[in-house]
Amino acid sequence: MNVTVLVEYLNSTIRVSVPIILVAIGVCYSERGGVYAMGSEGYMLISAFVSVVTMIYTNNHFISVLAGILSGMLVAGIFSYFTVILGADQVICGLGINFVMLGLTSSLQRLLWGVTGIPRIPVMNAVEIPVLSKIPLIGSMLFNQPIPIYLTYLLIPLVWWIMFRSTWGLQLRAVGENPSCADTLGISVRKTRILGIITGGAFCGLSGAVLSLSQVQTFTENISGGRGWFGLIAATFGGWNPLGATGAGLIFGAAESLQLRLQIMSKINISSYVILMIPYLVALLFILFIGKSRRHPAAMGKFYKKY
């Protein structure tokens, strides 16, 4: 493997990982509060759609990313109303969100741009950070990327700090472990959980916006293509810790990029299906072996009814 190919591989790993990492962080926030984040794929879809539509009308990346995040939060808000206030089954609701968003975005797209197809949007250029981007090997991988990627770097330590060092983070983890105990201490279980879910929606929204604005540069049906699920697994992999989830996201991204390179470099005949399996195999093996040992928040999936 020569150096250009290696640098390109590392670059690709970051591009593929970032959307997964962002979803994984979002999932951490929702699930630490005790609510399954099955709708992550749906939040991504709506955000990808809304941000592209906003981009077409405003031609401003900042506003578009913001609109995407808000749409993710909105849908997460609807989800939280059903699950936290009404006590509906979290898994069913989350899956419902995914299907509704897939249908909604696809039909809206056809309704608005049926014949011609949705327009392409201007590319979000990579911004090179001077000096740092000249570091051999990892320089251009880490420091020659579009702005949302840098934002992700900054967010990772921040979200870790909020979850494990701030009062709200402590409250969130408390309602996820033992909601009745948290309740007796005067923490509003509902409010905290809803906030956790909506924060999760914001991160999934950012992920959808990054995917559609900086990589795909348009909206296509089912644009998220399973990345929401990978995020869900990465969060579990990382023990619902944003740092662990980031590591897991990087592993998935690396596996996904590696399979493309393996196909190119393989001199022996391996079916591409075997190589394509790699990222999924990594995920499955994880669920089988390491997944068991992770202790999930004790109250996860349980509706807390206040009497």
């Binding site: 250009t4 190919v5 390109e8 591989y9 670059n11 690709s12 591009r15 593929v16 959307p19 995917l211 990589q215 795909v216 540069q217 348009t218 296509t220 049906e221 089912n222 644009i223 293509g225 996904e256 990029s257 493309l260 390179r261 190119i264």
Partner: peptide
């Protein structure tokens, strides 16, 4: 149908 995946594949061919 996955644009991002196709993009990565083309990038790897470019490299």
């Amino acid at each position: 149908g996955d644009v991002a995946q196709a993009r990565e594949a083309a990038m790897s061919l470019k490299a």
